[in-house]
Design a protein around this nucleic acid. Structure first.
Lengths: 168, 168
DNA sequence: CGAAACTTGTTCCAAATGGAACAATATGTC
DNA sequence: GACATATTGTTCCATTTGGAACAAGTTTCG
């Protein structure tokens, strides 16, 4: 009988339980295995945490990504964040206003360019970031726990190389 | 001056151009590097192709994922697809109706269980899949082109292991 | 059998998302 | 300087998305 638990994830999951269709076929026997396994893993890493962030703190993904960026770089414009996160500018704009209202951000006109507005994280925003980041750490550790230290370092190097190559 | 091209991507991109904030900081110096690099890569692999699919064929991501699943497994219920793709059932339901209207799918009552409906891909759906898949292949090749054959095989093994571990 | 509990697919609704057009400012070129 | 062009942030609107409730069918277990 079909009797599997729902798993929050994207694309495809291997499924070894009897009774269901042999879903491994999707993962094993397709032309773009790497693409869909990567997508699957990314979503496993990230989606449960975004759900939790929304549940606990009421922030949607775009809003948290804004906070995340500003946690590592002192000062950014909305345009910077749009480029960095790859989201359209209007989404950033919305997120900025929401985060301003909540007091997680400050905004100041750029004296050098009247079009731009400089964004900075507030102490309140930093506290929120510090509260949230452990969720990602936990999730990442769980997913990576099946790798040995050597394998993890391999993965680290491969990801570096790929990200560098992909962002030219 | 800030003069970078917009790149379609998620989360964060390293940015080596002078003038902008040193965005590498986000990628290099954070506690969940692997998570965000993986997310970045997944989106680089997948988003431009989904955009193209929508532009050319008018299918949204959920609709294409449905087609994708049925291309590799003969017969699935909506519930199966929901589990496999990790999307909520109502999204699948919508996608199924849309794809039925377009003639990419067929539906037949399951004689063994009156609640379920069995989905199958049509020849028209298969033709569409065959037309789309090369886009993913091209994109994946481009992203992986910076790895040697040995590194690609390393990556393959690591992804297998991770996916297996992540889907228990 | 029959009542409670569960599963499947659907509809309804509210939120998130992204494209397009827009006003304000900057830049480039003559 | 003046005009065309580009950039930034915003608003508007249509689409996508996901949670919650629901009806119909199935299973469990007394």
């Amino acid at each position: 009988m079909r009797k599997r638990q729902k798993q929050p994830q994207e694309v495809v999951a291997p499924n070894s339980e009897e009774g269901g269709p042999s879903i491994d076929a999707i993962f094993q026997r397709n032309e773009v295995r790497d693409t869909f396994r990567m997508s699957f893993l990314a979503n496993r890493l990230v989606l449960p945490v975004y759900d939790e962030i929304k549940r606990v703190h009421g922030l949607c993904r775009g809003e948290y990504l804004l906070l995340f960026c500003l946690s590592y770089i002192d000062e950014l414009t909305a345009q910077d964040v749009a480029e960095v996160t790859g989201r359209p500018r209007n989404s950033i704009s919305r997120a900025v206003h929401r985060m301003l209202d909540e007091g997680y951000l400050t905004r100041s006109a750029d004296p050098a360019d009247g079009r731009q507005v400089l964004l900075r994280i507030t102490p309140k925003g930093q506290r929120l970031h510090i509260e949230i980041i452990p969720m990602f750490v936990t999730q990442q550790s769980a997913i990576l726990s099946c790798l040995s230290a050597a394998e993890r370092s391999q993965l680290d190097q491969l990801l570096s190389k790929l990200v560098l190559g992909a962002s030219q």
